[in-house]
Amino acid sequence: MSTLKNKYTLVSEVMMKPDDFPVLLEKALMKEALEAMGKSSLGIVCIVNEQSQLLGIITDGDIRRKLLKVQKPFSAFFVDDALIHAIRMPTTTEPTATLIEGVTLMGQKQIWDLPVIDISGTLVGLLHLHPAIRAVLGMDNEL
């Protein structure tokens, strides 16, 4: 799967920084989460507390499933705290994990994004599948 060149590449070298993907505070409304996701090309939003510790994530898939289960009107759904509808214990990785470990984990879990948290639970990045695969294939400077 990997080239020798990228065998020791770390997640921290490839991950997106928090300014580059949607991150919201815990009191954000569902409507704000949907807007944040719409503005980015990613299908994920991370929710953190004031200390930037990761509290949960919402993905496109979570919203699709919610729409079929939540029977409340859209106006009520939109004003819910996004955290209510978030995955509270998402699969995560650490910045010191290798890229290969991160990509393998995403494959096992069938997910496209891995929030990256440090030892204190602080959200420090997001490993997105596309740049991760490009890095694995040594295509960092292409596309």
Binding site: K27, K72, S75, A76, V79, D80
Partner: peptide
């Protein structure tokens, strides 16, 4: 007002 939108006033 809807009951759920009262949260905006509370906030």
């Amino acid at each position: 007002m809807s009951p759920w939108n009262m949260k905006n006033s509370v906030r």
